[in-house]
């Protein structure tokens, strides 16, 4: 983790937060009560990350912070000084879809698509996490923080297990 300077802001005061988003250094000008999710969307216009509940109850806003899947609706932007954030816009590399994206397309692992960025960010992190077993039941449990009201879970599971073959074969690289 990058060392960074102290942050101090009065209520309502706008401060600069420097962070890395999808590999690019970015700066945010935000007050302390701005949430990472809203900063990504409203300020950086990275609108792929979605708001479904704003309370950590649905998973639509899942992004990676320093490689870990988190709910961006429950993290203040000012808490992200020096952090590395990856959103769905950073999942594809060099114009190539991430194996999880390819598998979601192939398996029709979505319907309306609104929870999909969050699903894929969780899936991409899961496939890189050796602590989570590869069997279907473990994947289902690990993915339960991403609700899909369209109910595409069957195809989501199939897509993740399919992408696993690509990721473990080394053709893909986790975000």
């Amino acid at each position: 983790m990058m060392e960074s300077s102290e942050t101090s802001a009065q209520a309502g005061e706008t401060v600069t937060v420097s962070l890395t988003v999808n590999g690019e250094p970015r700066q945010l000008q935000v007050t302390p009560n701005v949430v990472l999710l809203d900063a990504l969307r409203d300020d950086l216009r990275l609108t792929g990350t979605k708001k479904g509940c704003d309370h950590g109850q649905c998973g639509a806003c899942t992004v990676h912070v320093d490689g870990k899947a988190v709910n961006s609706c429950l993290r203040l932007a000012v808490m992200c000084e020096g952090r590395h954030v990856t959103t769905v816009e950073g999942l594809a590399r060099d114009g190539q879809l991430h194996p999880v994206q390819r598998a979601f397309l192939e398996h029709d692992a979505y319907q309306c698509g609104y929870c999909t960025p969050g699903q894929m960010m969780s899936a991409a992190a899961l496939l890189e996490d050796e602590r989570i077993a590869a069997d279907d039941a473990s994947v289902r449990e690990a993915m339960s923080g991403n609700l899909c009201r369209c109910g595409a879970y069957k195809n989501i599971l199939e897509a993740i297990q399919d992408a696993r073959r690509d990721v473990t074969a080394g053709t893909g690289e986790g975000a």
């Binding site: 969307r41 409203d42 609108t47 792929g48 990350t49 708001k51 999942l91 879809l97 397309l105 609104y114």
Partner: peptide, 21 residues
């Protein structure tokens, strides 16, 4: 056949109402 709008949904490009500024 895969959805013709699939890639938009998978890359964050699909423009839902909430995404309009």
């Amino acid at each position: 056949t895969p959805r013709v709008d699939g890639e938009n949904k998978l890359t964050g490009r699909a423009d839902y109402t909430t995404d309009w500024y």
